[in-house]
Each structure stands twice: as C-alpha cells, then as structure tokens.
C-alpha cells in the first residue's frame, strides 16, 4: 500500500485525514495501540523510532522516547514488530537522521520497505541535505514526507512540495511538538499556502491537541497529525483502549459528527 495514493484517494472521496503518531517501543503493547488507532479511524499511522536527542520534540514525546529506549528499543526491534502489523492503512516512520546515516541510507530505506513501511518523516533533514536519503528512499519505494514551517519562504515551499512524497507535513506553529491550549493562527496560513503550492495532501501537525482544534485545522488543511495528545495519554497508562477512544473522538470531530 502506498502512502500518497491512499491519502489522496481518501481526500478526494471527501474525508478529512487523520494520522496519529505512536512511539515505537512505548510499552509492550505498542503494536496493539497501532491496531487500536487504525480501528478507531486512522487513515495512516506515523510510528516514531526513538532517538536519544530528539530536538524537534517537546517533553511528552521526549519522555516516551526515553521510556522506549530504556526498555531496549532499537530501530531493528521496532521494524521487526512493524513487519507483523497488517492493519490495512499505510505506515510512515518518523525518526531523526542520525539513525538513518548510522545504518546507511540505502540499507535503512530497504529495511523500511522490507518491514512494510511506506513513508519516512525526518524532521532534522531539510531540503538542502535531503538528496542522499531521498534518492535512496525513492529507489526503495519509500515516500519521503517533507516538512514546511510557517516561516518557510514561498520559493522554498515550492521546492519542498516538489521534493515531498506521500503528503506535505505543515508545521502549524513556530515551535516543537507538544500540546497547546489553542490552534495557532499560523496553522491556517501555512495550510493555505501549501495547498496552493501542491496537489499532495497537506496535513497539519505539531500542536494539534484536541478534536476541536483538529476540526478547525481541517477547514483549510486536508487533515492532521496527532502526536503529543495521544502520547500523553499512553504515558498515563491509557493503553490500546484509551488510545482507541481518543482517536475515535478525533475521527468524529473530523467527520463533523
């Protein structure tokens, strides 16, 4: 299954897209969490491969990464478990580029493909440094999702959209991941600009914290990525059932129910 075609078809059928983020290795039942969020209506799932120094992440995902790493999680162990997942929606991996370079771009891309992963999101690998990885990913059939920020210039946004595969990840605010009280005013603007620049689905992420904020964001964007709001509940012990309930609430809000 491919990330871009699947999300595009869902969008074109009128759906607002929902992509929850789950930290790989967070608890023994993390693959059950992935199944639960798909059952609750996720259109794709972003799986975090934890890195020791996640500079784009706030305290919630940092804590999840620490917990997973202390449990002995490695990229290899996560991909081994991902291979056992057969959830019926595309999977994308989110991680930091040192883990990619350490393994080697070609080897890492092939490992993702072999595990059944469709896409990759590398928030510390910007346009000017993307080629070595993205060429290897293209060759392996892995879609590299690029990020655009509120302060990205128009010319750069065009180039980012041209290089992006799967979808375009719009960073909704100036800042790192974490829950916020309200949707940033910059969210609508970056979504509008990105929509004008590409036919790829445009998803907003970073700071999308409640079903209401997700519904607001999807007025302009094609959908949302929900990370810290879900991870915070998993850290509190919500488990697969709690994850299902939360993602179902996002689903209902996006569907206008």
């Amino acid at each position: 299954m491919n990330l871009g075609p699947h999300l595009t078809a869902r969008r074109d059928a009128g759906a607002s897209l929902l992509v929850p983020y789950v930290t790989g290795g967070l608890g023994d039942d993390w693959t059950d969490v992935v199944r639960a969020v798909v059952d609750a209506g996720a259109d794709a799932v972003e799986i975090g491969i934890p890195f020791s120094d996640p500079v784009m992440d706030g305290p919630t995902i940092q804590a999840a990464s620490v917990r997973a790493l202390e449990a002995g999680t490695t990229p290899t162990s996560i991909l081994g478990e991902v291979r056992t997942l057969d959830v019926g929606v595309p999977l994308a991996v989110m991680t930091y580029c040192n883990l990619v370079f350490h393994a080697g771009c070609t080897r890492f891309a092939e490992a993702l493909h072999d595990a059944g992963v469709d896409g990759a999101i590398l928030p510390d690998l910007p346009l000017g440094e993307i080629d070595e990885w993205a060429d290897a990913a293209d060759a392996a059939g892995v879609e590299t999702v690029m990020l655009a920020a509120p302060n990205t210039t128009d010319a750069r946004l065009d180039a980012i959209c041209a290089r992006s595969r799967g979808f375009l990840y719009g960073v909704s605010l100036m800042g790192i991941t974490g829950e916020r009280d309200s949707l940033a005013t910059s969210a609508g603007e970056i979504a509008r600009r990105a929509k004008a620049a590409t036919d790829l689905p445009v998803l907003l992420g970073v700071g999308i914290s409640t079903p209401e904020q997700a519904a607001d964001a999807s007025q302009v964007a094609d959908g949302v990525v929900v990370g810290s709001a879900l991870i915070a509940r998993l850290l509190d012990g919500a488990g697969p059932d709690g994850a299902h309930d939360l993602v179902a609430a996002f689903r209902r809000a996006l569907d206008g129910d």
Binding site: V55, M56, C97, P123, D124, L125, P126, L127, G128, E129, L147, A148, A149, P150, N151, T152, T153, R156, I160, V171, M174, G175
Partner: peptide, 19 residues
C-alpha cells in the same frame, strides 16, 4: 558552499531554523 570541512559539517536542522 554547503558548509562542509572535508565532508563534515552541513545544516541538519528543522525547517523552522533554515531562514
């Protein structure tokens, strides 16, 4: 031009910091 010393260096940061 891409900030390298013998291949080391570069600009591996979130998009937000590029400007």
């Amino acid at each position: 031009a891409n900030g390298r010393f013998e291949g080391f260096g570069g600009q591996f940061v979130p998009e937000t910091l590029i400007p």
